[in-house]
Amino acid sequence: MGATKFLVVDDSLTMRRIVVNTLKTLGFSAIVEAADGKDAMTKLMSEGADFLITDWNMPEMNGLELTKWVRGNEEFAELPILMVTTRGNKEDVIDAMKMRVNNYIVKPFTAQGLKEKIDAILKSSNGKPA
């Protein structure tokens, strides 16, 4: 479990720090950060990742566009994706599911909430997209 490599994507430095610190507390040490979707694409292609945690609202390329790119990319199509966002409307969740994110967390979240979502995705059938 601790060997899982995470890519944490958020344009807010504060949020990246919070997610990264929570992951470290949960026992994960392999973590890469990106400030937006384009940055994430570059990091994915150069460094790879086993698990993507992404914000939705970001400049350059948002989380939904990033998810679409990931799912359309043969190499990363099965990458587990957890969307972490302030957007909590029904339509937003449905849009994210249509893009085949694995799960969805509404900010502000708790450490326990993040842990449960990550555990559920990792335990699901090979983390296959929903």
Binding site: D11, W56, N57, M58, P59, N62, T85, T86, R87, G88, N89, K90, V93, I94, M97, N103, Y104, I105, V106, K107, P108, F109, G113, A130
Partner: peptide
């Protein structure tokens, strides 16, 4: 111009929005 934002973002101690999201995902799956 360079900022992407959610104008409806809210800071609340309530778990209602997460529960609603979970229910939608459950139904979807």
């Amino acid at each position: 111009e360079a900022t992407a934002f959610d104008g409806n973002a809210s800071f609340t101690g309530s778990t209602e929005r997460q529960e609603n999201a979970d229910a939608i995902i459950k139904q979807w799956n």
